[in-house]
Design a protein around this nucleic acid. Sequence first.
DNA 1: ATTATAGTTGAATAATTGTTCAATCATTTT
DNA 2: AAAATGATTGAACAATTATTCAACTATAAT
Lengths: 119, 119
Amino acid sequence: MQKGKEICEITYIDRKKVSAVKKRMKPETTMQRLAETFKVLGDPTRTKMIFALSLEELCVCDIANLLGATKSAVSHQLRILRNMKLVKYRKEGKMAFYSLDDDHIKNLFDEGLRHVKGE
Amino acid sequence: MQKGKEICEITYIDRKKVSAVKKRMKPETTMQRLAETFKVLGDPTRTKMIFALSLEELCVCDIANLLGATKSAVSHQLRILRNMKLVKYRKEGKMAFYSLDDDHIKNLFDEGLRHVKGE
DNA sequence: ATTATAGTTGAATAATTGTTCAATCATTTT
DNA sequence: AAAATGATTGAACAATTATTCAACTATAAT
C-alpha cells in the first residue's frame, strides 16, 4: 500500500524506458504551448471560423451569418484567435476584416482534416 | 434594432462571399470530428502522453511515473484516447502496455510541434 | 447633432471537464 | 485460498469555458 499522493513509483516501472523517454521529452513550456494550440483549434465554432478564414477574408458579420452565431459570440472567439496570433484583422470604416495570420496554421488544419477523413 | 436571436443577417453581409464559403464548407460531422480530435490533443496531460507513447510502448504505471500523475488520472485519460482510437493497448498479465494506434496521429502532432517552434 | 450599425467588452450563466478518492476487477504470488 | 498489485471505474469536486445579455465605442449616414 502507498500513502500520500499515490504517484506510481513502485515495483513494476521500467525505469530504463521511463528515463529514456524523460530524456527525450520536450520542455514543459513547449508542451504547454502545443496543448494550447490544439485546444484553440478544438472548439467547433473556432474550427469552422479557421476553415472559413482559410478560404476568404471575412468580417465579423459574415462569420456570424455563416455559422448562425451571434456577433458577440464570434467576436469573443476572434479575440482568442487573435491572442494566439492565429488570425489578424484590418479595419475599414466600422468593419473589421479578418484573415489567417499565417498559412502555417493551415498546414496543421489540413493535416487534421486528412486525419479525420481516415488517411 | 433587431429582435430575437440577433443572428447577423442584416445590411453589410457580403452574401456572395458568404455563400461561396458556405458551399465549400465541410460537412458538420467532419467539422465536429475535427474539433474533437484537436480537443483531445489539447490537454497538457494527454499531449505529453501522446508524445511519450510516440517514443515507447509504456504501461500505465510508467506513464504515471513519467508525468507525476496518479494511475487513476492516467487511466481516465487513456480511456479517452482509446475511445478516439488514438492509442491501443496489449494486456500482459496484470499490466497493460499502451502505444499509438497508428503513427498517422504522429504527423499531426509533429506538425503542431513545428508550429509552436515557430516554423 | 442625431440615428443607425459593426464591433467589442464584462458579467453572469450553464455546461464541460480534469483530477481525486474510494471501491472494484483481474491476475499473480505466496 | 488469501494477499498483493496493476489497472479500471463512478461519483464528487473544482476549475475552465462557450454563449448570452446588456452596455458601450466608433464610424457612417441622414
